[in-house]
Amino acid sequence: MHPNLTRYIEQLEKEAVIGGAYPKKLGRPELMFLQEVWGPVFNYQYDGLQAEYPFKDFKEGQRFVDFVYVKGGMKLLIEIDGFTTHARDISPGEFDDHLLRQNDLVLSGWLVLRFSAHLVEKQPQQCQKQIKQAIGHWWSLTKGELTTEDADVWRLRRNLLVQMAAQRNGSLKPRDVADAFQVTSRAAVNWLKRFQAEGVFTGETSKQQRTTRYILQNTFQ
């Protein structure tokens, strides 16, 4: 287990005790998600991620969700579904309530992602991909062409692109970024140009003097 994840879990348990509750015990699927999915996407930084998050539905009923990420204006909610818990051995009424619960979350302004425990364990890269796409989708919805000067948003964006470039032999094309985060090509170019100006990338130009590829500087590798 990554040391940052160990500290994150210890902090969860500490906060539960301070709040007068039993220490939060995450199950194996949730721990796998933190280690194999969230960790690689966010360089094992868990700032802004909350586990066993409570909220009230429109009937004022108390609910809990597995994870929420609230940072830089983003409201991302993630559920890890076990097959037995969510697809078998439930009554029609419980199934209806399960669907209404998700509708309540969407209507409350949350971007909702659901992963099966099997997918988290066997195909974590697919989960990572959809988290990146969710981040890009949220920014597209709330920030237009993503020109916000919010420091947390740009810092997160830079870290994700640095990690992505490191996994692609140190270079990125705008289309790579657009596909990974489900944003427009124009937005992807704006991101890369900004980080080029900050010295994170250098541009590689074609004969037509168009920047076709962005190379990660050695200090960030």
Rank of each mutant, 00 (worst) to 15 (best):
Tyr46Asn: 01
Ala197Gln: 05
Asp89Cys: 02
Lys132Asp: 06
Arg28Leu: 11
Tyr22Pro: 03
Ala117Gly: 13
Gly109Glu: 04
Arg213Trp: 00
Phe195Trp: 14
Ile215Leu: 07
Ile18Asp: 06
Gly73Gln: 08
Thr202Gly: 04
Lys59Glu: 08
Ser140Tyr: 01
Arg210Glu: 03
Gln126Met: 11
Asn190Ser: 15
Ala188Arg: 09
Arg101Gly: 02
Tyr46Phe: 10
Val17Ala: 04
Phe220Cys: 13
Phe42Asp: 03
Leu5Ile: 10
Asn169Tyr: 15
Glu94Trp: 00
Glu198Arg: 05
Gly72Trp: 08
Phe181Gln: 11
Val37Cys: 11
Glu121Thr: 06
Phe64Glu: 12
Trp191Pro: 06
Val65His: 01
Asp47His: 15
His98Tyr: 04
Ser140Phe: 02
Phe83Ile: 04
Ile131Val: 07
Gln45Ile: 13
Ala197Tyr: 07
Ala134Trp: 02
His137Val: 03
Leu111Glu: 14
Glu145Asp: 11
Ile80Met: 12
Gln221His: 12
Phe42His: 11
Gln126Ile: 11
Asp179Tyr: 10
Phe181Tyr: 14
Trp110His: 04
Ser116Trp: 13
Gln128Met: 14
Phe181Asp: 11
Lys129Phe: 13
Gln128Arg: 13
Lys59Pro: 00
Asp179Phe: 10
Val68Asn: 05
Lys25Arg: 10
Pro40Glu: 00
Phe220Tyr: 15
Glu15Met: 02
Ile131Asn: 02
Phe220Thr: 06
Asn43Val: 12
Gly72Phe: 05
Thr148Trp: 03
Lys71Gln: 08
Asp89Val: 03
Arg194Tyr: 05
Lys56Ile: 02
Tyr44Thr: 14
Met1Thr: 05
Leu172Val: 12
Asn190Leu: 14
Tyr8Asp: 00
Leu172Asn: 09
Ser206Phe: 07
Asn159His: 09
Glu52His: 03
Gln128Ile: 12
Val162Trp: 00
Leu156Met: 13
Trp110Met: 12
Gln62Ile: 07
Phe95Ile: 01
Ser108Asn: 12
Glu149Ile: 00
Asp81Trp: 08
Lys132Tyr: 02
Leu12Asn: 04
Phe95Trp: 03
Val177His: 02
Thr202Ile: 10
Gln126His: 05
Arg175Asn: 09
Leu192Pro: 14
Thr211Gly: 06
Tyr8Gly: 03
Gln196Lys: 14
Glu145Gly: 05
Ala165Cys: 15
Gly144Pro: 13
Met1Arg: 08
Leu99Cys: 03
Leu119Cys: 03
Ser171Asp: 08
Ile78Glu: 01
Val183Asn: 08
Gln11Val: 04
Gly136Tyr: 08
Lys129Ile: 14
Lys193Asp: 07
